[in-house]
Simulated scan of single mutants.
Amino acid sequence: MRIHMIVLGVLLAAGCTAQDSSTATGATAPPVADTPATAPAPTTPPQPEPLPEPPAANTVPEQFQGDYAADIAACTAPGHVTRLTIGDSRIEFHESSGEIIAVEARGNDIDITARLTGEGETREAASSFRLSDDGQTLTDTVNGLGRQRCD
């Protein structure tokens, strides 16, 4: 009987020690969740509408686009030295034309940088213009040449 008491004492001591060590480390069995076997998929919040794309840096605003020349008579003369055509992405002077590669518009003022080809060469050129309030006169702000809208 004494052996049984010793064995029982050892077992009780071992059980208490095991309990004490788990409590001391803070380890506990995780609680069993009451969730269904197939949980619903999480919903994604609605996405905001995308912002509109800003205009390309090489696109000329519509109010500057058109055909211009020194006067109405020059508008009707094909190849006149003062002829200028400004499109949304191209510019054409009398002897050179090309792709617009940069635009900076501020109210009635515009700076255009273009890659121009003419007279056997290609070069980058910058031009600055001011459009009259009525939109009918385009003035080169570097050399002062004013051109009337032809269209």
Score class of each variant (00 low, 15 high):
45 P>A: 15
21 S>F: 13
124 E>P: 07
83 R>D: 05
145 L>K: 06
100 I>R: 00
11 L>E: 06
86 I>M: 03
85 T>G: 07
76 T>I: 10
13 A>F: 11
83 R>Y: 06
143 N>V: 09
142 V>G: 10
128 S>W: 01
57 A>N: 13
89 S>Y: 01
77 A>E: 13
11 L>N: 08
55 P>W: 03
102 A>M: 06
134 D>H: 01
16 C>Y: 07
65 Q>D: 02
47 Q>V: 15
107 G>W: 00
57 A>W: 05
133 D>S: 15
67 D>E: 13
110 I>D: 00
73 A>H: 04
79 G>K: 03
147 R>P: 03
101 I>T: 12
57 A>F: 07
7 V>P: 03
151 D>F: 05
119 E>A: 13
117 T>V: 10
38 T>P: 04
141 T>G: 04
60 V>W: 00
75 C>V: 06
105 A>L: 04
136 Q>C: 01
69 A>W: 00
68 Y>F: 15
58 N>K: 08
63 Q>V: 07
24 A>P: 01
112 I>L: 11
136 Q>D: 10
87 G>T: 14
112 I>F: 02
73 A>D: 14
18 A>D: 13
58 N>V: 08
8 L>P: 07
6 I>S: 04
114 A>G: 07
148 Q>M: 10
72 I>M: 14
91 I>C: 02
59 T>Y: 03
134 D>E: 08
2 R>I: 09
98 G>L: 02
116 L>G: 02
44 T>M: 11
116 L>N: 03
28 T>P: 00
142 V>S: 13
137 T>P: 00
99 E>R: 12
100 I>V: 09
30 P>F: 08
116 L>Y: 01
71 D>K: 03
33 A>H: 02
80 H>C: 10
144 G>I: 05
49 E>V: 15
72 I>L: 14
64 F>R: 01
46 P>V: 09
13 A>L: 14
69 A>V: 03
28 T>F: 11
8 L>T: 15
113 T>R: 11
140 D>L: 01
38 T>H: 15
5 M>S: 14
67 D>H: 10
116 L>V: 09
44 T>L: 14
105 A>W: 03
5 M>C: 05
1 M>H: 12
25 T>F: 08
90 R>F: 15
50 P>I: 08
